[in-house]
Lab assay of single mutants.
Amino acid sequence: KELVLALYDYQEKSPREVTMKKGDILTLLNSTNKDWWKVEVADRQGFVPAAYVKKL
C-alpha cells in the first residue's frame, strides 16, 4: 500500500474529510482526483487536499 506524508495540519470541514497533523503518515487509498486524495488515518477514511500531502 502507498503512504503519504502530511505536509501541513488540516482540519476537516465536512464528514467526508479527515483531520491530519503535519508529519502524520497516512495510507493513500485513491489519488485519481488531482485536488482531493482519499486517505486512511486512525481507522477513518476520508479526503484531504492533495497539495497538503506528499507521496513517500
Rank of each mutant, 00 (worst) to 15 (best):
K1C: 14
E2I: 14
E2M: 12
E2H: 12
L3R: 11
L3V: 08
L3C: 11
L3A: 06
L3N: 06
L3Q: 10
L3E: 07
L5W: 07
A6F: 02
L7E: 04
L7M: 09
L7S: 03
L7F: 04
Y8M: 13
Y8R: 15
Y8H: 12
Y8T: 08
Y8S: 08
D9P: 06
D9V: 03
D9H: 06
D9Y: 04
Y10L: 02
Y10M: 01
Q11K: 13
Q11M: 13
Q11P: 06
Q11Y: 15
Q11E: 15
Q11R: 11
E12C: 12
K13T: 12
K13Q: 15
S14L: 09
S14W: 07
S14Y: 07
S14I: 04
P15V: 10
P15I: 10
P15H: 10
R16E: 13
R16M: 13
E17Q: 11
E17P: 05
V18T: 06
V18E: 01
T19K: 04
T19A: 07
M20D: 01
M20N: 00
M20R: 00
K21D: 04
K21A: 09
K21I: 08
K21C: 12
K21N: 08
G23N: 07
G23R: 03
D24F: 06
D24L: 06
D24V: 06
D24T: 08
I25H: 05
I25T: 07
I25E: 03
I25N: 02
L26Y: 11
T27I: 15
L28K: 01
L29P: 00
L29H: 06
L29F: 04
N30A: 09
N30Y: 07
N30C: 12
N30E: 15
S31K: 07
S31H: 09
S31Y: 08
T32D: 15
T32K: 12
T32F: 10
T32N: 13
N33Q: 10
N33V: 05
N33R: 10
N33D: 15
N33K: 08
K34P: 14
K34A: 13
D35L: 14
W36R: 03
W36I: 03
W37C: 04
W37R: 02
W37F: 07
W37A: 04
W37M: 04
K38A: 08
K38F: 15
K38Y: 15
K38E: 14
V39N: 00
V39W: 00
E40D: 07
E40V: 11
V41W: 07
V41R: 15
A42T: 10
A42E: 13
A42R: 14
A42W: 12
D43R: 08
D43C: 13
R44L: 06
R44H: 07
R44V: 07
Q45A: 13
Q45S: 13
Q45N: 10
F47G: 02
F47N: 04
F47D: 04
F47S: 03
V48P: 00
V48E: 00
V48C: 03
V48K: 00
V48L: 02
V48Q: 00
P49M: 03
A50N: 03
A50S: 14
A50C: 08
A50M: 05
A51N: 13
A51E: 10
A51M: 12
A51W: 09
Y52S: 10
Y52E: 02
Y52L: 12
V53W: 01
K54W: 11
L56A: 05
L56F: 11
L56K: 04
